[in-house]
Write a protein that binds this DNA or RNA. Structure first.
Lengths: 189, 189
DNA sequence: AGGCTTACCTAGAGGTCCTAGGCAAATTAT
DNA sequence: ATAATTTGCCTAGGACCTCTAGGTAAGCCT
């Protein structure tokens, strides 16, 4: 067991898989060390501490999410693009619950700037090119869209929608219709 | 130090204050015991375990939030009520960050049913009486509103809106305008 | 081959969670 | 008023997690 071939990247990848299995809050240095068959202390050559590991995981997840969303909206525009964006976002959250939780960490502004967080805004802004929106309404709309998508999947996962028989899927589709019609009619009061 | 007068309720209250001070994820049995000047083990006569404590905290916060929202919308209707609801919701999240985090815990369905979670839906439903909405659109709209409110304050707290100069307050007001106009025009496609 | 770096180790301190079992004060029963 | 019971907090200790200090052994470089 001389060399397990650990690197910060391999640790982060494994941590991401672990997060999806056991939940983001259960990603520990110990569990990760067990997974590689090494002692806890060995990981501290590659990561500064447990928080550092979580931040790396968050940055990884943000980049993955941005990639998947970018792929899904390529070649689409208008409502098509909006729906593709939203579905890609929601699908990622469902398929990678631990990774998605990681994206919700509060990151240092500098780290956040380096990460894919900016790419998210850019892509949302690209969506809005299909609608007749200009600053500052564009930023307001981006924030509204992001809030609604995040809020929906977040509440969905927390079980907040289970108390009513109305299908979660049906409400989701209806929500996308509503957002589309909202954006088209934006020049409000 | 014979009797510190501990009860489950006093522990929950103190845990809520602690959460607002140091963050929900840092509410530990140990820290709570320290606050009362007793040993960790003493708390286990009043709470089953750490998770139980967090659930009690969540139920407390949900009830408080429901109360404050209920008070704020009393006597209002239409957009007035919508704005009052949203502002009360957001204000609670800002003033009680730890408590608000607690409200986002995934609760057992039975516990959630017993808690104030139902009151939230009822109140949101009351808001919609000012608009011309019936099932199942009503439920869809409730979910949309709840998602947007939660998503907004959640992203706001995570610092997701800091990267752009547009004021967070201005976007919030604009978001409320947008939701009001959306609800008035709901009968969509 | 000698020196340096890398990758992992042991040892150990300190924190959190939680159980088992105990004692003494407060409450209730007689 | 005293006895029985319950309540409230205790000590002791195991299990797990975080992280530091210091060490060894393997691989790389000249």
């Amino acid at each position: 067991m001389a060399h397990a071939g650990l690197t910060a990247d391999r640790l982060t990848q494994a941590a991401a898989d672990l997060a999806d299995e056991v939940g983001f809050e259960n990603v520990t240095v110990s569990a990760l060390a067990r997974h590689f068959g090494v002692k806890d202390a060995s990981l501290y050559s590659h990561i500064r501490n447990a928080q550092d590991l979580r931040v790396r995981l968050a940055v990884l997840a943000l980049a993955e999410l941005a990639d998947q969303v970018a792929e899904s909206i390529a070649g689409r525009s208008g409502k098509d693009a909006l729906v593709a964006f939203a579905n890609a976002y929601r699908r990622y959250a469902h398929e990678h619950p631990g990774r998605y939780s990681a994206t919700q960490m509060a990151l240092d502004p500098d780290i956040a700037a380096d990460s894919a967080a900016g790419k998210h805004s850019e892509m949302t802004r690209a969506i809005l090119r299909g609608y007749d929106l200009w600053e500052p309404d564009q930023t307001d709309a981006i924030r509204l869209l992001h809030s609604t998508f995040h809020g929906y999947v977040s509440l969905e996962r927390a079980g907040a929608f289970h108390s009513h028989p109305r299908g979660v899927e049906a409400s989701w589709l209806r929500t996308l219709d509503a957002l589309d019609s909202l954006l088209r009619a934006w020049p409000l009061g």
